[in-house]
Design a protein around this nucleic acid. Sequence first.
DNA 1: TATGAATGAGATTTCATTCAT
DNA 2: TATGAATGAAATCTCATTCAT
Lengths: 206, 206, 206, 206
Amino acid sequence: MTEPRFQRRKEDRPAEITAAALAAFAENGYAATRVDDVAKRAGVSKGLLYLYFKTKEELFKAVIRSFISPRIDALISNVEETELSAEEFLRGPFLEFACSIPKSPARVLLKLMVAEGPKHPDLIAWYWEHVVSRGITALRMLIQRGVKNGEFRESALDEFPQLLVTPIFFSLLWKLLFQPHSELDTDQFIGAHVDMVLTTIKAETA
Amino acid sequence: MTEPRFQRRKEDRPAEITAAALAAFAENGYAATRVDDVAKRAGVSKGLLYLYFKTKEELFKAVIRSFISPRIDALISNVEETELSAEEFLRGPFLEFACSIPKSPARVLLKLMVAEGPKHPDLIAWYWEHVVSRGITALRMLIQRGVKNGEFRESALDEFPQLLVTPIFFSLLWKLLFQPHSELDTDQFIGAHVDMVLTTIKAETA
Amino acid sequence: MTEPRFQRRKEDRPAEITAAALAAFAENGYAATRVDDVAKRAGVSKGLLYLYFKTKEELFKAVIRSFISPRIDALISNVEETELSAEEFLRGPFLEFACSIPKSPARVLLKLMVAEGPKHPDLIAWYWEHVVSRGITALRMLIQRGVKNGEFRESALDEFPQLLVTPIFFSLLWKLLFQPHSELDTDQFIGAHVDMVLTTIKAETA
Amino acid sequence: MTEPRFQRRKEDRPAEITAAALAAFAENGYAATRVDDVAKRAGVSKGLLYLYFKTKEELFKAVIRSFISPRIDALISNVEETELSAEEFLRGPFLEFACSIPKSPARVLLKLMVAEGPKHPDLIAWYWEHVVSRGITALRMLIQRGVKNGEFRESALDEFPQLLVTPIFFSLLWKLLFQPHSELDTDQFIGAHVDMVLTTIKAETA
DNA sequence: TATGAATGAGATTTCATTCAT
DNA sequence: TATGAATGAAATCTCATTCAT
């Protein structure tokens, strides 16, 4: 009748714990989150948590690292393999991806990275290497392909492919901070930005 | 009689303390900053600090509130009073303002707001009211004036004047996180964005 | 039928565990030694260790008790059965025994007894009974035999046979604490002491 | 009526705390002593203790270092300045000093040094330098003076002045461990040893 | 005012012991 | 028997806040 006090789930534990930790960190930030709470959320004792993660910081890093959505990989390989024209790709898969981010738990990630990242250079380095620089490279490839095609003219985007993604981060910040004060329709917002960019860089087709 | 020995700076104290606090919070974040350190930086005893600010949180809020650069006020009244055309204004005072932000201590502000803001709704409300919504209103005015002028055509910017400022926040984030990994020339970056926007919204002048 | 696969060493287990525990306690002391480590050293799981020893303290006591070198028994029965004169015995078997101690693992024993003994009166009682008082009795017998023989005169040694062994313990302490700072040639040191004692107590033989 | 909750006693605090710590360590050993207990004994909050000693280990070291009885200094300078003959000095001030040690709190010191010393090489080094090597040097001087005088003949004591002090340490160990099982009259014990040494090394005065 | 010694609640971390498997 | 995942009590240490001076 009584539930078993011990349940062995070696495999799943780390994932369960990082998930709980993500939720907790999201609510309170790193420093204000008690390890105790994370354990409780994960339905696990503090001791067990420390069996899997040597310190709270270790746990934090694991949380962040566990958090590259497979979607970015998908997007990147998509760029490489797509048969769509550059514009079609931007209006299709890219836009869809971009619009999805502000609705995903990425907000939390941004918050954690901004708040704690600077104290963990290795974490930032990891993120740079595994996520950001790869993403930028993919964007740059895409743009250049458009230029080579004759779809696009040369533009600042060749040097600053980041210009494509600024509204994504703006949306994240907005939702994080001002959500209750003013709703932002991020789909439209990002769509309008992409539109604007394309208008600017499309080659004249006279 | 002897002159009072301790007449120095009585009214500057709060400002000195918030300045010290800003620096400390910037380095370590809110939770990881010790009140002791703030006091030491300010050259003041802990006891005295508590005389001016009832709690650490109080101090934090004071720091944030102290942080509307007079420049935004200047910019806003500039918008209202300028005799420049909308495009001239955007390419002139606005661009200058925009480019200055990523170099200013605003980075710190962003970090603090992202990390701690959500825990202090009153702070966010204050910020929204005193800074953000006023800024957006000013931008919107500027755009609409351009449209009325015939300088600009109708565009998504009418609804989303924020589209003008996204690269500012992107630059802040980039510098905060990835500065050591990849330098971003924020002047050029923001300039290119403004260029792009203007290209898009300028009315055909055939 | 297949032979039992796990027949190995069932009866050696406790000894293997106490040996591992001795090594571990020696390095870190009782409190700073983790049961986990002992188990690992013994190549055994924690669970099994607890099957043999109900608590860590139990294990500690077993370690200490396991530690009467058979040599003291040998020495004692040697005293009883020897046909050597008292002086010959002291210069021969006794001296050899005495010199061997500071080189043996007894250092560890001393450390453990000093550090933890006082908290385990039963352990000390056991040690007193099985080792110390028997040793002293043997020494006293030896001396008295010398006196009866006419080899020795009456002396303080009759009452304090411990005077014979003080340099042994001094050597142990020295090695334990000051080994790296100053080497002590314990053989010579103990030899000189025994010499001195004998010089003093030998009956004038003229 | 109510007692003041705070009492400022900056000067005395460290000494009060090390005294309390000594007592606590003496009873339970280092590891088994809780910082909380030390604080309670000292009539002080845990926090204050940590204001003066950064870690428990720091506290431990301070305790040990605080523990060179001024008496050893006295003894050493006594050796240097005395006008007594070497024998008179040994039978007088030295014997008195030697006999006092087993009655002093030095027992505790020995226990702590044996149990924890090996984990703190700097502590041992400090002790070696400030106490042990100085003590040995003083003893050696004394003996050599006796030899030069013609009081003593050359002997193993020239090389091993430690032979003089072995019963002191033996007494300490005995009292620490076997006090309840067998009383040792340490005055007589040490006296007998000194006697024995003097008998051996006195020059024939025919 | 101004100080900083003093407090104590609460955080992280450890580890002897248990028990489902 | 044998394992080692899981527990939870307890230890060390921190720091916002107070208050005697």
